[in-house]
Each structure stands twice: as C-alpha cells, then as structure tokens.
Write a protein that binds this DNA or RNA. Sequence first.
DNA 1: TTTAGAACTTAGAAACCTTGAC
DNA 2: GTCAAGGTTTCTAAGTTCTAAA
Length: 750
Amino acid sequence: MSGDHGHKDSKIDSGSRVNESHKHKDKHKDKEHRHKDHKKDREREKSKYSNSEHKEFSEKKHRDKDKVKHKDGSLERHKEKHKEKRKEEKIKSFSFDEKPKKEKENGFASPPRIKTETDGDSFYYSPKYEKSLKREHDDDDKSKFSTNNFLSFFLWILQDIEPKKKTKDKKTDETDGKKKAKKEPEEKWKWWEEERYTDGSKWKFLEHKGPVFAPPYEPLPSNVKFYYDGKHMKLSPQAEEVATFFAKMLDHEYTTKEVFRNNFFKDWKKEMTPEEKSKITNLSKCDFTEMSEYFKAQTEARKQMSKEEKQKIKEENERIVQEYGFCVMDNHKERIANFRIEPPGLFRGRGDHPKMGMLKRRIRPEDVIINCSKDSKHPKPPPGTKWKEVRHDNKVTWLVSWTENIQGSIKYIMLNPSSRIKGEKDWQKYETARRLKKCVDQIRAQYRDDWKSKEMRIRQRAVALYFIDKLALRAGNEKEEGETADTVGCCSLRVEHIKLYPELNGQEFVVEFDFLGKDSIRYYNTIPVEKRVFKNLQLFLENKQPEDDLFDRLNTSILNKHLQELMDGLTAKVFRTYNASITLQQQLKELTSEDNTPAKILSYNRANRAVAILCNHQRAPPKTFEKSMQNLQSKIDAKKDQLADARRELKSAKADAKVRKDEKTKKAVETKKKAVQRIEEQLMKLEVQATDREENKQIALGTSKLNYLDPRITVAWCKKWNVTIEKIYNKTQREKFAWAIDMADKDFEF
DNA sequence: TTTAGAACTTAGAAACCTTGAC
DNA sequence: GTCAAGGTTTCTAAGTTCTAAA
C-alpha cells in the first residue's frame, strides 16, 4: 500500500448507524430508466479510447486471450436474476475468462499452492519442526483412530472428574506476575507443528455432547399482569411468552420503531388463541409495563444475591461448560465457541432491517442436525425427543446446525478460535495476504492499465478493484431486496452513493462516498482520486438514475474470478487483510520509539487505530464517554497539583540540605526526588490514557485486532520493543493467536 | 454454467465480570 | 461494602466465499 491510506480522517462521522437520510427512498421506481443502452455506451467508449493505447494493452496481457469474445458484447448475463426482480432490463455481456481450472486443495485448510510455494515462505514448517509429531491421518486407518480417540476421550472424562481448575481462572494467571496463582494445567498442543490434512477432510474423529437448549418458558407469576386497553387480561402461555420478549425490550429504541412493532404484532398474533386474537387488535393498547418491571426486579435480585448463591450459579454454569463446552476432535479436547442454541426472542436486525421484531422461534431437537464421526459416541437428544438428523460429514467443521426462521439461513455450532481447525484457517488467511504482498505491485499496475481498457466491464472492474485496494472496501455482494437492510459494498455501490467534484477544497478529482456498509455502519469519505479514475466514474454515471448500480457490469463473482486468475486464492477480502496488516507494520515502524512502555503501547494503539479507520470499524461512542473523560481530566488535574506540591517540597528539601549538609537532609532530598519522579510517571500515564481514550471515542480496535492484523506482526513488535505480549493481547486473544506467539520472532516481516 | 444454499468469517452491541476509588 | 468504569466475553447478525444441485 504505499502510503495510500492517508485520507482516513474524514471518514469517521458522528452518527454511525443508519440515519434516515440514508433511506433508500422509492429506490426502485422508474426502473425503466435504467441502463438505457449499453451497446451505445460501448460504442462511445470504443471511439473515446481508440486503438493505439488499447492495442498496446491488450497485446500485453496474456490473460485476456478471450478478449475478442468479450468485445462483441453479446454475453452479459450474470446479474440478471435479481435485476429481474427489480423488473428492469440490464443488458449485459460478459463471460469468464477460460483459464484451466486450478487444482483445488479439496477445501483443505492449507494455503493454496502449497507445493509450489515452499521457497522461503515461513508457512512451511521450519526445520525444527520437521520431524515433529504428525497428526495421524491416513485415510484408511480408521480403527487406529477410533481407538486413540476413545482413549483420549476417556482421559478427558477422567480429567473432568478432577477438581476443576482450568477454565475459569480468568485473571488469576494474568501476567503481572503478582498473582501467579493457578498455572496452565498442561502443555498446550502445538497443532501448528503438525501436518495438516491434504484430502479435504477437516477431521477424522469428532465426538461431542450436542447443544444446550434454551431453558423452557417459565410462565409469569399470577401477580404480574398484562393489560389491554387498561383492562387486565390473562394471556395463554404461548402468547404470554412472546409478550415477555417484547416486555424485555421495552426500554430499547427498537420497540418505538414502526417496522419492529408491526412485525412483532403480526407474529405475536400468530401465537394467540382465537379469543386473544379477536380481542387484541392494537399494539398501542397493550400495556407490558408490569412484565417489564418484573424482569427488571429479577435482574436486580440477581445482582443482590449473596456470594454463596452467586457461587452456586457459577458452579452450575461451569458444570455445563465442562459437559457441553468441549469436544474431542482428532485426539484433542477442543473448546466449542457457541454450544448453546440461540434462545427464542425477537429478531434484532441492524439498521433499517425490514424484519426487525419478528419472532425468532424456539429451536427443538427435531430441528437440529448433529455432525460427528460414526465411531464416536453420538450425543443424545433430550428424553422423549429426537434429532432431525445425525450425519458424519468430515468435510465440514460444524458440530451442530439448524435453520433459523427469519432468513431461512443455517446456524452452526463451531469450535473456538483457539482450536486447531480455526487457527489453521486463520494462519492460512494471513499467508494468502502475504502472498498478495509479493504481487500487489503487479496487480496494481494491471488495474491501472485496465482503467484505459476499451471494454466497459474491464474498466469498471479495474476502478472497483482500485477502491477495494485503496479504501479497503468490502466486496459488496448483491442482496435480496426487502429481506435485509439496504446496505452496500464496492460492487453493489449505486450512483446515489458517490458524488464527484472536479475540485474540492483545493484538491482535484475528489470523490465523496456516502453509503451504509455492513451492519448499516455509515461509510463517509472524501478522497482525491487519479484523473483517469475520475473520468471513468463520470462515464459510469452517465445516463443513470441515483438508484442505478455504479458498476452495472460487475459483481463479486466476476471480480473474484478475475482475482483468482491474478493470484491463486486471491479474493476481494484478501486486500482488506493485506492492507490492514501492512498498514499496522508500517505504522508501528513509524510510530514506535525507544520510550517508556505506556508510550510504546500508545504507539501500538495508534497503529491499530490507523487500521481501524482504514477498515471503517466504528462504534457508537460509549454513553458514559463525556463523563468518564471528565473524570479522567480531574484526575490529571489533581495529579498535576500533586506534582507541583512534590516539586515544591523537593525544592525546599534541597535548600534545606544545602544549609544543613547532613545525611538526613540528603536522604530527604533523595526521597522527594523519587516521589517527584513517581508522580511524573503517574501523570504521564494518565495523560497517555486520556489521549488514547479520546482518539478511540468512535473507533473500535477489536475487530481489526482480531480479524485483520497478522498477529505475528504484533508478536514481533512486542519482542523487538520488549513489551510483554499481555500488554497487547488479553487471555482470549493470546489463546487465539497461540500459533503466532509461538512462532514469530522479533524479525518477523509480514 | 448458473444459482441457491451451505459454510465460514467478520461485526458491533449487550451482558457480564473485574478492578479500583471511596 | 458499594459503585462506577472499563475490560472481557458472549451473542448472533451480516457479511464473503465456496460448493453442489439444477
């Protein structure tokens, strides 16, 4: 990335999510206007970007061997299906370059091109690991496996019987060294020193206890009443349960939104008896306050419980975690991420979600598919029930799945990020990004070249890729209208999402982006682009309505197919990973200096922040922000006063010592000196904290830290600057990144 | 070959827990 | 002991990419 990401500041906007102005009003009216005549476009382009430069380009690119085919403009098809839904006609013509398909890695978690890449790439086992323990995974060796695994499962059970020590020791083993109470019970398994499967399987043995279901509904006590139109009304249990979902959310803004209320009411009615249905016809006449108060009181009571009671609950939870929170996968006990089935409730879609408020129904064993190995002890469904299915698919990583009723999508229970199966994939992700580093210059040169292409689809592709690379935009899949909030990514940007300024605030060729991205987080950015990009954008906008697609001849599938040809394993999101990680590395180099630890950490956070800004990771400013800032400021002021006092005292002690010249006064001077130093340090810490907090007001660092930044960069930085890793990664993060902590040394380069 | 659905990653909010000041 | 603040964990929605069925 060549310092290209320096335009960040303008991006963070005070209101992060949704806002009415973004509503896509009547967006699909007048669809007939759209995409008038792409043939005309193409002809226009042809004349504009006439022969010479294009010829030169097309001859150069071996990849575009099928260009002739594309040029005739007869093949566009892809987007049509959903455009159809919009009742519009887009004439498109494209086809995919016919390159021989690269051999797939059978979906296995190893990086693509594993065999051809060995040269010097650290992804491969270093010599010291060469003879390391190999995971047994010969396809045909089943019996051996099951024996081993039964053994290990047995050991696991045994371990469980032992007094619980590990899981909830939380802070106790935190670094400071102060409280080194309980230590890790056993040596952690270094899966990264072992070989991976190459046959596409994700595991050979998998055993678990199945999911934990939501507790059954407990009817309200009879004194907690529901009122309709001012009159008490006893609800049937089903209707009451759904009513409590609403009551629990009464303080939330959701319940004031019309869409939420309408969806809720509609679904609630489905749960009512005919009698209830005929009576309750207006949600506004429903009074849930007693229910709401009841739940608040319960929460309060829980807080007020005695230590013993709290402890009892904690132990019971712990027992459940021990029983259901782990599985055995290939000889190893692994933590499960989400072993609880999502409880019923009201759907909380983000942004202007058309389905918010709908009832998320209760999942029963009959809805659940179990995945485990044949030779494992299958999880038992709760008494009197059965599973929907028990399957043995070792080409996938999930243990349990079910279909949810809001979007009809499948939900999964999977392993914790610290597990081998997730870790390998994560590692592989960063290796792919590092491979991109090696060819990114070439790819950039190519897309710049493609801005001149005489084919519209190629120019669109090239401009989109430029945005993805430069601005770290997401790919932008197409979404089904009316099913989700109206959000976009790069390929799905619409005309209304950008504005072009030939000149703005003294800068030439400025593009203003303003759209809702993932989770309806607003992306706002004004950025000068290269002239050719600007001209292209002008062209893409011609004869289009605000609600038309900016890149009407592009979608994520086309883009990713193209990227795949540029580099094996390359997809749009690799750019985000690459640019995030390289930015961190560069920023760390730039910002860190021989300094005290808090200052170094501030540098780290600033580097992290640069990435978070690039990736537009925003958060709502904490509600208590202003107040906590004030508090901190008063602490700083107090500390300053304290420092002034200490300095004064030191001064007078010095004067005293000058006069008296005895040991006692000398000592006093030393003591005062130390006190001043200590206070200075404390003050500095507070000031750093204030700066950090202020800068972090609307920025969430966690997402990039967890998902985009190659942890080896961080580990290397810690080692280089003598910062303990615990200062940067908390326990969970250290578990997730154990592989990186173990393998990266201070010279690691992304 | 296209497309729908499956699989898996990324995301911010909320719940929960710990810490430290008083 | 209480309380507020902030860090951590959990939750699950919302993306992207992969895969397999039509």
